[in-house]
Nucleic acid binder design. Structure first.
Lengths: 208, 208
DNA sequence: GAATTATACGAGTTATCGCTCGGTTATGGT
DNA sequence: ACCATAACCGAGCGATAACTCGTATAATTC
């Protein structure tokens, strides 16, 4: 009864900060964690190292995070949130073609703008699938995209199972680009790849 | 001059075994490593634990592997090789449609047959992209697939950049299925998903 | 069957890690 | 001005990790 029994206590924060300086501390920790990840990798990153680089006492680190997993879960969550906002703040697309093109382009630009970090997040940082709350992007974007497809039903080849189709193309898009980030980052600058992906999605979706 | 200066000494084996019993030892280590991965995860897997479960002295383990990374690189390599053999030992496809269908089906079956292991390999085990030799599948399958597409050029929508197109669809296929393995494993049993992927690829490739 | 080489072993050394705990310092409310 | 509490601190403990090295045993060679 004494210990916290939240289901995913391992991956969420401990205290919720109220004052400004504590938020600054948390940011310093997350920023240092990012730098450590890029220099020594997830495996050799330690809470001590992160705290030291952040200029923060190790005790303070444990005030806010139960461990290294939670820190990197938060780094990932914030990046994911950033992607979501980039995607949604863009001008509302009118047509399906517009949707596909702009969202693919946004994700390409997103990973290109900080390639090393995203490669490290995809490759090194475990995703704690079990018990962790879903990432913002999948949780928020998915219903939105499904609704969009619904309103464009007439143009679609698949007018059934729209939710699953929407899910499928979201996954395929992100997964394919992530694969290039990891295994062939140099090709991300080749416009052909982006063109191929857009083609792939349009041909699949559109009732030509 | 004394120390080995192989570029990727970290991820390859030390001694190459000649006798039968040493091969058995290596197999025991790899098998134990797999079991440890599935029970405690990559992070908490240790060489000591692996050796103990394998019924092998810790000294013996270090005769063959420079560390935990190398062990899991080898586990991954062998699984990848198995996939390659499954794919290539299948009856030679005649048409593009046949190629797409059978290879997609083979990969679906491959991951379904040992879901936990593949999820762990994808999620937990770093891929040591830098300095590590490419995996067998990508190295061997890719040229073969490209050649196949070349001989079916007439049916293709893209008759240019065939190598890149071949590369692209291979990556997209694997990446998409892997994404389901990680984030929505239950849907792998839904025939709709497999159908969507086949559709996606055929529409993209074929000059209808 | 002796010499050589390959294989196996595991106690022990060294390093680092995660994390606590007792305590100090800063902030905001009243 | 005072107090409650939020934030910060870091020495140090216990656990566990990676990895070595001297030694013992099995296999192979000639």
């Amino acid at each position: 009864m004494d210990q916290q029994s939240k289901p995913n206590a391992l991956y969420s924060m401990r205290k919720t900060p109220t004052q400004e300086r504590s938020k600054a501390t948390i940011n310093a920790i997350l920023s240092a964690a990012t730098r450590v990840l890029l220099t020594v990798g997830y495996d050799k990153a330690s809470t001590n190292k992160i705290a030291e680089l952040a200029g923060v006492g190790i005790g303070s680190l444990y005030e806010y995070f139960p461990g290294k997993e939670a820190i990197y879960a938060e780094v990932r969550r914030r990046e994911d949130l950033r992607l979501f906002e980039l995607t949604m703040n863009h001008s509302e697309p009118e047509t399906l073609t517009e949707l596909v093109r702009s969202h693919v382009a946004i994700y390409f630009e997103f990973v290109r703008s900080n390639l090393d970090l995203h490669a490290a997040l995809i490759n090194d940082v475990p995703q704690f699938a079990v018990g962790q709350q879903e990432l913002p992007f999948y949780r928020e974007y998915q219903p939105w995209a499904t609704a969009f497809l619904e309103t464009h039903r007439s143009e679609l080849r698949y007018d059934d199972n729209i939710a699953q189709v929407s899910n499928f193309i979201t996954r395929a898009t992100r997964a394919t680009i992530d694969n290039y980030v990891l295994h062939a980052p140099e090709q991300l600058n080749d416009p052909l790849i982006e063109q191929l992906l857009i083609d792939l999605l349009e041909r699949f979706l559109l009732n030509d």
